[in-house]
C-alpha cells in the first residue's frame, strides 16, 4: 500500500486519516463515552498506523487493522482508568450531528450501551456502528465466534429489558 515515508506517503496518510477518522473516533467514543479520551485513543491509533504504514497491504486490511488497534487501545484505556460507576444520566453527549431517529431514545440507548461490561459493549458497537458480521467481530476481538454470538444475544436482551423499564418509568 505504501513504499515508505516521504511526501507522497504523507499525502496518502493524510487522505487515509480523513477517510477513516470518523470510524476510529466513533469506536473509541461509543466505547469510552468521553470525547477527549476518544480523541487521544484515535490519535494514538493513527500515529501507530503511520509507523506501520508499510505493512498495510490493502484497503480491507487497513480497515481491519484500524478497527482492531482502536478496539484494543480503547480496552487498554478503560483498564488504565480507575473504576467509575457509569450513571445513566451522566454520560456526555459529544456530537452536534442531528440524529436520524428519536433523539431521546438514541441518547438513552447510548447510555445503556455505555453501562454494559467492556467486551459485550464492544461487540454491540462493532455490530451496530460498523455493521460487522459476527465472524468479523470475532476476528477483531480475537474471541471465539460462539462467544461473540452469545455475548451479543445477552447484551441485546439486557438493553431491551433496561430500555423497556426506562420507557416505562417515563410513561409513569
Amino acid at each position: 500500500m505504501n513504499d515508505g515515508h516521504g511526501p507522497n506517503s504523507t499525502h496518502l496518510f493524510e487522505s487515509t486519516v480523513r477517510q477513516h477518522q470518523a470510524m476510529v473516533f466513533s469506536l473509541a467514543y461509543h466505547f469510552l463515552q468521553d470525547a477527549a479520551a476518544a480523541e487521544d485513543v484515535a490519535q494514538e491509533v493513527f500515529v501507530q498506523l503511520y509507523r506501520n504504514f508499510r505493512s498495510i497491504q490493502s484497503p480491507g486490511h487497513l480497515r481491519f487493522w484500524l478497527r482492531k488497534v482502536t478496539v484494543h487501545r480503547s480496552l487498554d484505556e478503560l483498564r488504565r482508568r480507575p473504576p467509575q460507576p457509569i450513571s445513566l444520566e451522566e454520560v456526555a453527549e459529544a456530537s452536534t450531528d442531528p440524529a436520524p431517529g428519536d433523539p431521546w431514545l438514541s441518547a438513552r440507548l447510548r447510555r445503556l450501551v455505555a453501562a454494559l461490561p467492556p467486551k459485550p459493549r464492544m461487540v454491540v458497537i462493532l455490530r451496530f456502528q460498523e455493521d460487522l458480521e459476527l465472524r468479523e467481530i470475532a476476528d477483531t476481538l480475537e474471541m471465539p465466534l460462539n462467544t461473540v454470538k452469545s455475548c451479543l444475544r445477552r447484551a441485546l436482551a439486557v438493553l431491551q429489558a433496561k430500555l423497556a423499564r426506562s420507557v416505562g418509568d417515563v410513561k409513569v
Binding site: 470518523a22 467514543y29 450531528d97 436520524p100 431517529g101 428519536d102 458497537i125 451496530f128 431491551q160 430500555l163
Partner: peptide, 15 residues
C-alpha cells in the same frame, strides 16, 4: 430495536 441501536451508534465526526 436494532435499527434504533444503529441510529444511536452511528459514526460521528471527531472534533
Amino acid at each position: 430495536f436494532e435499527d434504533e441501536l444503529r441510529s444511536a451508534l452511528r459514526r460521528r465526526e471527531p472534533p
